[in-house]
Structures are given as C-alpha cells and as structure tokens.
Design a protein around this nucleic acid. Structure first.
Lengths: 331, 331
DNA sequence: TCATAAAATGAGAACGTTTTCACTGAAAGG
DNA sequence: CCTTTCAGTGAAAACGTTCTCATTTTATGA
C-alpha cells in the first residue's frame, strides 16, 4: 500500500542503497542526487519504515519507561509527572522516543521478566526489585533504576538524598522549638521509607528526644488515609506540635485534618511535606516541603541510559540529586 | 548475540516454522512438540523478536498517544493523567502497548506531519488540528481524536459534554440565587472554550441577566494567573457573588484569591470548577465541580481506535461522554 | 595528460520473523 | 482395503530497510 524505498528508487532512477543514504546519511550523497531523491519521496508520500530500519540496525531508538508501583493507578502519581516530562524531553533531544508501561507488561506468567525487544533500554521507576533488573540484564537490556537504590553489580541508580531531605525537614522543625514531632509515613519502596525514617529518628536523637511510637504511623500514600491518621494523632491528649509527612499528598491530608479540627496553621500545628509536588503551593496555607529536583532526576536517568545504550561502559553508581527545603506557610 | 528462532529450532529438532507456530498459535502444533519447543526456548533464554515480528505481520501492536497542547510541559496536566491511565489499561487489556510523545515528534521541519510507522494507530489528545489529522490519514494511519471535536470526514472524536456541563454548573449557581456570576476561562482548544462559554452565556440568558464583560476573563490555565485575575475581579466595587471557572486549576487559584481576601466560602463567594481533577477534593474547602468521566473517555478512545485498527470501518461520529455536577463545599 | 586518490553509486546479503503452499502420515468412512 | 480428510510439519518467499564491498565516476596533483 504505502510506498517503499524501492518505489522511490525506481521513480528517481537511483538504487535503493542511494535512496537509503539520502535519508540516513545525507552527507554521503551528492547534493543533486539528494534533491532528486527527496522530490521523488515527496511525490510518493514516502516515509522510511522505522520497523524495517530497526530490524537491520538492531536498534529502535526507543526507550521504555516502566513505572513499577504496588498500587495502580500509577501514572496519576503527581510525583512522577514532572520526572516523566523531563525524561520525555531529554529523550526527544537525543533522538529517542518513549514507550510507557507498567511492570505488568514485562512479567511473564511464569514469573520471569520478558522483554519483547522493542526498546533499546529501560528506565525502571519506583519499587523495582533486583530480580527484575537481573532478568532484564540477562537479555542484554540496558537498565537504569529511578527513585530507588538497588544493590546490583554495575547498576546505575538515580535517586535523591532521601535521608538528607528528611534531616533538613526535621531540623527545621526542631530549630523552631518543636519537640513532640509526629511522623506520618507512606508505604513506598524500602529505600525511600528507611532513608526518610532514619532522617526522622536521627534528628530526634540530635535533640535528645526519645522516639514515641504513638507519633509514628504508616499509611497508604493518599490524602484520605493520611487525613484519618492525622485526625487520630491530633486527638491524642498530648498531641504533637508538628508533623513530618513523607510526601506532599500525605501532608495535604494532614493539613485538612488540622483545619477541620480548627487548628491554626502553623501556630497550633506545623506541617512539613516532602517532594514539592504541584499540590504543595496550591493548598492554602501553602505547604513547607522538601524540594526534590525531579527535572534533574529525569534528565540524569535518561542521559545515563542513553550513554549505556550508545556503548559506554556502565559502572556501578548511585547518583543522588540534591535536596532543598522550601519554607512556605505551614511552618 | 541473543538466541533466534533458528537456534531454538535446531536445538529441539523442528523447523523454524514450527517453533514460530508454537509461540504465535500454539493450537496449530502438537502438544508434545510444543513442550519440546518451550523447553529449548527456555534453555536458550529465547524471546521472539517483536521487531521482526512486526515487520512481517505489518503491525506492531503499539498505539501512539500524542498530547498536543500549546504549552509545554504537557504530561503534568492533571486532566490528562486519569485519561492516560485509562487508555493504558484498555490497551493492555487488548494486547497493545503505548507510545507517548508530543506533537513535536510528528512534525517535520517542512511543516508536514510524519509518522515513522512504529504504531498501528494514534490517539490525538488536546488541541489537535484538522491538518494534522489529514496528514496522518494520508499515510493510512488510523486516528482518534480525544477531548476535541474536529470536522473531518469519517473521524471519530471522543469528547465530553462541555456545553451541558457548563450549563449544569451555571444553573446550580442561579438556582442558589446568584445573579452576578463571573467567568474565568482558560485558553484551551476552541472546541472546549466555546462550548463552555456558550453554556455560561445561555444560563445567564435563562435568568434574563445581561452579560457583563468586566466579569468575563480569559487566562492561561494555571493557578497563579487565575489567582491574579480573581483578585482583580473580586476587588470590583460590585463584585460577582459567584465565579464559574472553566477548570479546577483555575478554580483553585480563584479559591486562594478569595481566601486571602478574607472572604468566607461559600457564604461570601461561591466557586464552581470543571473536570473534577484530583485537586478538587484536596483543597479546603473542597471544590464544587463538574465531573468529567475521564475513565470512559480514555477507554472509549482506545476501543474506538483498536476497532479501527482491527479492520472495522470507521464512521464519522463525535462521542460525548456524560457529565455530572459534584456539589462539595464551595457552593 | 596520466596516475592516483577520493567521492558517489550499485549489487546483494542480511536482519528474524510469519505465512503460504505443499507434503506426509494417520484417522475416518464406506 | 481403498479413498478421503485432516492435523502436523517443513521449505522458502516475503517484509523494507541498512551496510559491506566492489565498481564507476569525479577531482587532484604533478
């Protein structure tokens, strides 16, 4: 149906090799020839077929972005949107297109990880596990892990300074004189959870405040659950004067609970979130939070993966993007 | 490097034709044979190559999701996240993978629309234009347009009842006795803009209220601009008692402006949004808004496209998903 | 002008599948 | 027992490119 390279070749009188070169490496072809080829191509409405191209070149110029979180839906996650955006732009700049899927697409019924080789590499975002990475590796698939730190040989992981961010948030609260500080933690990947939790604990230790487990709660990371949890925590007789939430969605839920309880923010209760998601400056009062450089994360992950694809040797490294406290109105 | 179908064939002693059938149409192959083939495949870590497969079959089982909005970044758009999610799931259920890109990937330097044929069809979301659709059509690419209504022959558009939704929102306000009702409209595609604007006008006409152009403003659809705009509108001497915002992001900005001006919501000012985005129930007070069935939109678009890909004749139709008023705390 | 180098082009194999067609052997029906 | 049917299998063409190698044409320098 559609015109092929052969149609173009016979129309302009050159061989298909020359037509191919006119498109793929124009500098190897005489100026005059190139023009004739283009002219014929336009006349026939011809576009090189990417599939045939991929077949012989052995690469597709596609990158897979796999979000891997326990809970569906996953693209909704406001944390990943800006990262995804950044990955998309970086890939576009380097000439790659983006494939998106959840980890389910990769899982075979037998529990193995399969890859229908339509992509040159994979960015594994979220709660990726080492097994999956190794399965992919065994199929010679370049992999970069995003927002997680996995202990696999020669694996590049792009994450952020979870521990430092938590410490930053907590010290900010302790510096304002808070002693009874609650923690409402979302159930993310172990890497994220433990790092942020450690930051919480160490900051309390710094001021000699013992851990009070009534003030430490884990919830599914959505606003409703967080609100319920915060409501309970705030109704304790000696309730905390500040709450550190391990992401902004949870912080928003906490904020709602506080407002409904009639508390004045930040006078009666201080709240700090994490991630600096869009939502953090949409609520009123605006949320103090830990900014994560999502653009850098996405860009780095894409660049690292592309470097790997294009032949550079990959070395084991965990790249941590820096973190920054954004003080707004809830502290 | 990786094992091919030939390696499997020679290991298990069958021809490559049989191996191919064992994977692609297992029922055409004897049980015993199939097991031997699978065994050999596992031993060699073999996976059928999707590219070669696509080449000979003439289809990739991939669908392109193209978000086409004037302003980057685009994936951030909270309106599209649930739609995208729904498309993703529908595609997965039907055996398709998803490619994502912005319209820029499709545009050639010469202004034409190109499609490197790696997808069997395209969902064009956002401010798509008829020219692009026709370019794609000329390359035999099935297209479905999402969240827009374009006047192209035999084109399927999946959109929502913009006009009805606006009417619903406005009647809700007029029924509560509001007469001076402002409009803060985001600059979306003409289809969306005009429909919602018409709903606004007609509802005012219903109660015999003349249009007051001081109460009608257009902004870029982000919270900051909306907040500025609302602040100005609310400082008019005879300010409106209610504001209809053409999406939730704008409504949130308006809400912030009102709260900062010390207005009590909904007593001093009523606000209605549009879309029922996630944000609408995260802010406090929660937003009254017009719910758009985004899951249905995504699902319908995907199903329509897949039907077209799989050979069903496409007929010109504009599918409108229904709309529903969600009354929360801002009215 | 001739030898040499460089640039431009063409022929054809290769990429890894699917699928058509033909063939075989076994089951079914008389 | 002979034909007919049918499930199972194999040989080989086809899909539309790229790329190596060989060949032809053009440019360069003496």
């Amino acid at each position: 149906m559609a015109a092929t390279i052969l149609d173009v070749a016979s129309l302009c009188g050159y061989s298909k090799a020359t037509v191919s070169r006119a498109f793929a490496s124009p500098d190897q072809v005489a100026e005059k020839t190139r023009q004739r080829v283009y002219e014929a191509a336009r006349a026939l409405n011809y576009t090189p077929d990417a599939i045939a191209r991929a077949m012989v070149r052995g690469r597709t110029d596609n990158i897979g972005f796999v979000i891997y979180e326990k809970q569906y839906p996953v693209v909704l996650n406001p944390f990943y949107s800006p990262i995804f955006e950044s990955v998309l732009q970086t890939c576009a700049r380097k000439g790659y297109s983006l494939f998106i899927s959840s980890d389910r697409d990769l899982r075979l019924p037998n529990g193995q990880t399969c890859v229908k080789k339509q992509m040159d590499g994979i960015i594994l975002a979220g709660q990726s596990d080492a097994q999956m990475v190794m399965d992919l590796r065994r199929q010679n698939m370049p992999v970069v892990v995003l927002n997680n730190a996995l202990d696999v040989d020669d694996l590049t992981c792009v994450t952020t300074d979870q521990y430092g961010g938590a410490l930053l948030a907590m010290r900010h609260l302790t510096e304002r004189g808070h002693r009874k500080i609650g923690l409402i933690a979302g159930a993310f990947s172990p890497h994220v959870c433990t790092s942020r939790y450690n930051g919480y604990c160490d900051a309390l230790r710094e001021i000699g405040q013992p851990l009070d487990f009534r003030f430490v709660q884990t919830v599914e990371p959505n606003a409703e659950q967080a609100m319920q949890c915060a409501t309970m925590m705030l109704s304790l007789p000696d309730r905390p004067t500040a709450i550190f939430c391990t992401n902004d969605t949870i912080a928003v839920g906490t904020l709602k609970a506080a407002l409904r309880a009639g508390l004045r923010i930040p006078h009666d209760l201080a709240i700090v979130g994490f991630d600096d998601s869009e939502i953090s400056h949409l609520v009123e009062p605006e949320l103090t939070t830990v900014r994560v450089d999502k653009a850098a994360m996405g860009c780095l992950a894409a660049e690292q993966l592309i470097a790997q694809i294009e032949g550079e040797q990959s070395q084991k490294q965990v790249i941590q993007t820096p973190v920054e406290l954004v003080i707004r109105q809830t502290t």
